[in-house]
Computed example of a mutant assay.
Amino acid sequence: MVEWARRSGGLLVIRVHVQPAAKRNEVAGTYGDALKVRLTAPPVDGRANAALCDFIALRLGVAGSAVAVSSGHTSRRKLLSVVGAPDDSEARLLAG
């Protein structure tokens, strides 16, 4: 298990550092003890949070409703909860 992800019961909890208003959606490696994610969405009216959940769901191959921001709604540092995440989630997130 990597430093930025842990399993808790049936959930995968991911620590994320978000860079909104970027040129493209991508995982940009790690940032300290968090997974760094760049998003094209601006940090306005929850659009970056919604884009983050959709992006992570797509990368993991789970439904969008399976990913939720559990803390850090107005911060760049967030905790995401993923229900039903596959066992190779960390590799999927880091894959090009």
Results as ranks from 00 to 15, higher is better:
Met1Tyr: 10
Met1Ile: 12
Val2Arg: 08
Glu3Phe: 10
Ala5Asn: 09
Ala5Cys: 07
Arg6Gly: 07
Arg6Asn: 07
Arg7Gly: 10
Ser8Thr: 13
Ser8Asn: 14
Gly9Arg: 09
Gly9Thr: 08
Leu12Ile: 11
Ile14Pro: 04
Ile14Leu: 14
Arg15Ser: 07
Arg15His: 13
Arg15Leu: 10
Arg15Cys: 03
Val16Asp: 01
His17Trp: 11
Val18Tyr: 01
Val18Asn: 05
Pro20Ile: 06
Pro20Arg: 01
Ala21Arg: 03
Ala21Lys: 03
Ala21Glu: 11
Ala22Cys: 14
Ala22His: 07
Lys23Ile: 15
Lys23Ala: 15
Lys23Pro: 07
Lys23Asn: 11
Lys23Met: 14
Arg24Phe: 14
Arg24Thr: 13
Asn25Cys: 11
Glu26Trp: 09
Val27Tyr: 03
Ala28Asn: 15
Gly29Lys: 01
Gly29Asp: 05
Tyr31Met: 05
Asp33Pro: 00
Ala34Lys: 08
Ala34Gly: 04
Leu35Phe: 00
Lys36Met: 04
Val37Asn: 02
Leu39Tyr: 00
Leu39Gln: 01
Ala41Tyr: 05
Ala41Asp: 09
Ala41Lys: 02
Pro42Gly: 11
Pro43Val: 14
Val44Tyr: 13
Asp45Gln: 13
Asp45Cys: 15
Asp45Met: 15
Gly46Tyr: 15
Gly46Arg: 14
Gly46Phe: 13
Arg47Ala: 12
Ala48Cys: 13
Ala48His: 10
Asn49Trp: 00
Ala50Met: 07
Ala50Thr: 08
Ala51Leu: 04
Ala51Cys: 08
Ala51Asp: 06
Leu52Thr: 02
Phe55Gln: 01
Phe55Thr: 02
Ile56Gln: 05
Ile56Lys: 06
Ile56Thr: 07
Ala57Trp: 01
Ala57Thr: 03
Leu58Arg: 15
Leu58Ala: 15
Leu58Val: 12
Leu60Pro: 02
Leu60His: 05
Val62Ala: 08
Gly64Ser: 10
Ser65Phe: 08
Ala66Val: 05
Ala66Arg: 12
Ala66Leu: 07
Val67Leu: 01
Val67Glu: 00
Val69Met: 06
Gly72Phe: 01
Gly72Glu: 08
Gly72Thr: 09
Gly72Leu: 04
His73Arg: 11
His73Lys: 11
Thr74Asp: 09
Ser75Val: 11
Lys78Thr: 05
Lys78Tyr: 07
Leu80Thr: 04
Leu80Ser: 01
Val82Arg: 02
Val82Tyr: 01
Val83Phe: 11
Val83Lys: 14
Ala85Gln: 12
Asp87Asn: 15
Asp87Ser: 15
Asp88Gly: 07
Asp88Cys: 07
Glu90Pro: 02
Glu90Tyr: 05
Glu90Ile: 00
Ala91His: 13
Arg92Trp: 07
Arg92Cys: 04
Arg92Ile: 06
Leu94Phe: 02
Ala95His: 09
Ala95Gln: 11
Gly96Ser: 13
Gly96Ile: 10
